[in-house]
Design a protein around this nucleic acid. Structure first.
Length: 592
RNA sequence: GGUCCCGUAGCUCAGUUGGAUAGAGCAUCUGCCUUCUAAGCAGACGGUCUUUGGUUCGAAUCCAAACGGGAUCACCA
């Protein structure tokens, strides 16, 4: 039963009966807190057609509903706003339906498949806070789409080759003295990152020297010995030089071990990992095809271009003069590969908004080439995580390291939990588990509560909160409910919704109302690809429950049916909180 | 310079696609643990929704311009 649909239908009938007029679409909004009621129908739009005052219209519809609707109890009209309340029997019926539905909030399979590509790290540096936003977003979007009935394939395209990789390889070869993760005790990805920074230091020094000798800035950047050597190294790698390839394998291996640890820690995984070293040569045949079709054109120097000025974009290079690929060439090839591997209906790339232009170009080219899957392609463009000082830059060391941040959060969780002293009977392993759950809950929630499209600010000076609009607040509410449910079990009180009508407490009505919104929120989040909608919902629901908890005593009520109802209601809230948090990739503890 | 985003409380963010007196959290202040977990609840304080025009019964929301911030416009990825 969908209460909104029922109500809208009843309003449609009311308008027909009262005014002999058919209305195409009825829109309801939640009633504001300061007014009585749960659903509000705005009548202003009807005034012209009906030639009546907004208040008259509201009064007439309200009266009709109160008399004829099977779900409406009372109403009030404020200006042009018709505020509607539901019968307690309707609330109870809604609650029963939610309890009966094992998959509350999820949609049945829709027969469509979607690929979500996210994370896509570079193997020359460890993950930072920006990567975490990407990972959590991609992971959550995949979960949300699954809940919406899609078959989801999570993929990761590892950027494991290129000049930047060669830079850290070169610096390691020159300065590394055979250092390994084992010998240094440094996690593999951090070790590679260390030499990437080392490269930059030496490189900058070399540029400065050249400039001091009178070379121009631009030229110095090109002529600096290490830049030249890095390029040589890239060439050697492409030619398969055994020594270079061996070093590449060794260092990337370290990085993968490091990444694997981090991924495991944050609970992110992939169904398929693509490596750019396997795919970077793809796409050239597509260029040939496009040339034959006249989609691309060749300049005298041999380079291949596309003119996208009609689409509001520019002329864009798709193949270098020497016949080698550029970024867009590889992406064309990789997209084709994904399609031939999986044949999905939709493709989503979770990539920062700094690449908006690139994806506009990519999709425009796919359309020009007449690819059927082009329409299913979508760039989930998310905003950067900025620091108060501005953008994070790996080379300059102005990044918030993912592993460090997680460890800091874990420590905070531990300190706070210890201070509160609620889990003194926990085994040490159990306690560690809880600290992790809370730390990751706080961190994930912090990054997922903001609209993905918007850039967001992280201030390292201010730690991420564990109180208020946070993950731990929601986790706490869940633990609280679990405590109630444990007590109910001890007292042998069954969770049951009374079959007959009984007057409900306002806080109970509020809770059932919020619960009833959940499926539509999951759908909206799926449509918008916005985990923030789920985040916000979980918070609101937890807040409403805490209000209920403070206002209503669950076990002290003399009416046993009231107690059973409140236990049942609590159980549904716990289930819904858990489910919504799962969609965010956040675990909820039973005690904390 | 072209294109594209963004501008809401001291700070971080919502605002259900044009509706009521613009909402949360943090911070500050005041109450509430002998009762189901106080990581909580209740309340106070806090706003020229950057500005100026326009569209209409009605604008934070739509349109235009200005100001401010950011991204991008590589034979880098």
């Amino acid at each position: 039963m969908n209460i909104e649909t029922t109500l809208k239908e009843d309003i449609r009938v009311a308008i027909r009966q009262c005014f002999d007029t058919a209305v195409e679409e009825i829109i309801l909004q939640p009633t504001k807190k300061e007014f009585e009621g749960f659903y509000t129908f705005v009548t202003f739009a009807l005034t012209k057609a009906l030639r009546r005052s907004p208040a008259d219209i509201g009064q007439a519809i309200g009266t009709y509903l109160a008399e004829h609707s099977s779900v409406v109890s009372t109403f009030n009209v404020v200006q042009g706003f018709l505020n509607i309340s539901l019968k307690d029997s309707t609330w109870l019926e809604l609650l029963r339906a939610m309890r009966a539905e094992g998959t509350f909030g999820t949609q049945p399979a829709n027969g469509q498949s979607v690929m979500v590509e996210f994370s896509s790290p570079n193997t020359n540096k460890p993950l930072h806070l920006g990567h975490l936003r990407n990972n959590f977003l991609g992971d959550s979007v995949a979960r949300i789409l699954t809940a919406n009935g899609y078959e989801v394939v999570k993929t990761c395209l590892v950027n494991d080759r290129g000049i930047h990789i060669c830079k850290s390889m070169l610096a390691y070869r020159e300065l590394g003295r055979g250092e390994t993760p084992e010998s240094s005790g440094i996690k593999g990805d951090h070790l590679a990152g260390k030499y990437y920074v080392e490269f930059d230091k030496t490189y900058k020094k070399q540029i400065a020297e050249l400039v001091a000798q009178g070379t121009s800035e631009d030229e110095a950047a090109k002529k600096a010995p290490w830049m030249q050597e890095a390029q040589q190294l890239l060439l050697k790698w492409e030619q398969g030089d055994p020594e270079t390839v061996a070093l590449w394998h060794k260092m990337n291996g370290w990085v993968y071990e490091g990444f694997e640890q981090t991924y495991r820690k944050i609970g992110v995984s992939f169904d398929k990992t693509y490596y750019e070293s396997d795919t970077y040569l793809l796409g050239k045949d597509i260029i040939e095809e496009g040339l034959r079709q006249g989609v691309f054109y060749r300049k005298e120097d041999g380079s291949v271009w596309i003119d996208l000025t009609e689409e509001g974009l520019d002329q864009k290079l798709v193949l270098r003069g020497d016949g080698t690929s550029v970024y867009i060439t590889q992406d064309l090839g990789t997209t084709e590969l994904k399609y031939s591997d999986y044949g999905n209906d939709r493709y989503i790339w979770v990539v920062g908004n700094e690449q908006d232009y690139h994806f506009n170009v990519l999709f425009a080219i796919l359309k020009r080439l007449g690819r059927a899957y082009a329409d299913g392609c979508y760039h989930l463009s998310y905003g950067m995580v900025d620091l108060p000082s501005g953008k994070m830059k790996s080379r300059e060391g102005t990044v918030v390291d993912a592993d460090d941040l997680i460890e800091t959060m874990r420590q905070t969780a531990e300190t706070r939990t210890r201070d509160l002293g609620k889990i003194e009977d926990f085994a040490s392993e159990e306690a560690q588990q809880l600290y992790n759950t809370l730390a990751l809950g706080a961190l994930k929630y912090f990054l997922l509560k903001v609209d993905p499209k918007k850039r967001m600010l992280f201030n390292p000076e201010e730690s991420i909160d564990f109180q208020g609009h946070t993950g731990p607040f929601i986790q706490y509410t869940h633990a609280r409910i679990c405590s109630i449910l444990r007590k109910a079990e001890q007292l042998a009180i069954a969770a049951e919704v009374p079959s007959h009508e009984r007057p409900l407490h306002a806080a109970e009505q509020d809770l059932i109302f919020y619960l009833s919104l959940y499926p539509s929120r999951v759908q909206a989040a799926g449509q918008e690809l916005a985990p923030s909608l789920i985040s916000l919902y979980a918070f609101e629901l937890a807040k409403v429950y805490n209000q209920f908890y403070a206002e209503v005593s669950i076990f002290a009520d003399p009416d046993p049916q009231a107690v059973q109802l409140r236990v049942a209601l609590s159980a549904v809230v716990a289930k819904t909180i858990k489910h919504s948090m799962e969609l965010l990739g956040i675990e909820v503890p039973e005690r904390m």
